[in-house]
């Protein structure tokens, strides 16, 4: 089941330049939240702070508080590794492991976590591929084909299956469809809609129609600040801030 996300005064830096200036927001369990905003506004940085991926960039730094369920993400003694296990992430460009088969790609996270039981592994891999709507397309080449041999859209769904296999509580998606064709994008959007039954989903997108289609909540970022956070319908119909209105009506960005 999904858990809630609570962010308090989150600030992030790349070296000396501040990318996020104190973000506070709360996301409820089992919802889909879209993060929109012009490029460079800090939306990717924001989601990368939720699972501590931001700090893997040399010179990057984070301040503030993030709680995911009962876990204090930046608390003393909370290992980043554990946070990332509980918070799955799908990246902008599909990044399957090219040296592994489709099966091994999905099982990679489980194996890292010391999961060795063959039967349960098989079950989880199959279930994850079903959830990612990829099973029927790959079941024949499961243990023969490389993850890199799939098409772009299939690769991205494979990456989603890989993230789902470790049973995360939260799923972060950083522009998951930006590198895909319209048909693959539609498949991924369908998928996101179904996934919220089991996970809390946060999706970064530069495509406002996409945000309107998949998310019930939307946050608008501009130059490192969270300008507005509300029900998607409200944001797109009666935004409370002039800058949000300017953005969704296409006046900048």
């Amino acid at each position: 089941m999904g858990v809630g996300i609570e962010v308090r005064g989150l600030r992030a830096w790349f070296g000396a330049s501040e990318a996020l200036h104190g973000i506070s927001v709360e996301m409820r369990p089992n919802t889909v939240t879209a993060i929109i905003g012009p490029s460079g506004c800090g939306k990717s940085t924001f989601v990368r702070c939720l699972n501590r991926m931001h700090e893997t960039i040399p010179g990057a730094r984070v301040e503030g508080e993030v709680r995911i369920g009962s876990t204090d993400v930046y608390g003393n003694g909370t290992p980043a590794v554990e946070v990332r296990r509980r918070v799955g992430m799908v990246f902008q460009k599909p990044n399957p492991f090219p040296t592994m088969t489709i099966y091994d790609n999905v099982a990679a996270g489980l194996k890292l976590n010391g999961f060795r039981n063959r039967r349960e592994l098989d079950e989880t891999v199959e279930r994850s591929l079903h959830m990612a709507a990829l099973w029927d397309e790959v079941k024949d080449g499961l243990k023969k084909q490389s993850g890199a041999s799939l098409s772009g859209g299939q690769q991205q769904r494979l990456c989603i299956a890989r993230a789902l296999a470790v049973q995360p509580e939260v799923l972060l998606m950083d522009e998951p469809a930006s590198a895909l064709d319209p048909i693959s994008t539609a498949k991924i959007e369908d998928l996101i809609y179904q996934l919220k039954e089991r996970f809390t989903v946060v999706i970064v997108t530069h495509n406002m129609q996409q945000a309107a289609r998949v998310a019930e909540w939307t946050g608008f970022f501009l130059m490192g600040d969270l300008i507005e956070f509300d029900k998607t319908q409200k944001i797109f119909t009666t935004p409370g801030d002039k800058r949000t209105e300017d953005y969704i009506t296409g006046r900048f960005g």
């Binding site: 991926m53 893997t56 590794v81 509980r86 992430m89 990246f91 990044n95 399957p96 492991f97 990679a108």
Partner: peptide, 26 residues
Amino acid sequence: PQNQREGVLALGATQWEMIRTGILRN
């Protein structure tokens, strides 16, 4: 590519596991 490291890290790998699976293997 950087995205291979991130792919492994995001699954909850330790630094060594990231190097082994994400880098050395590739």
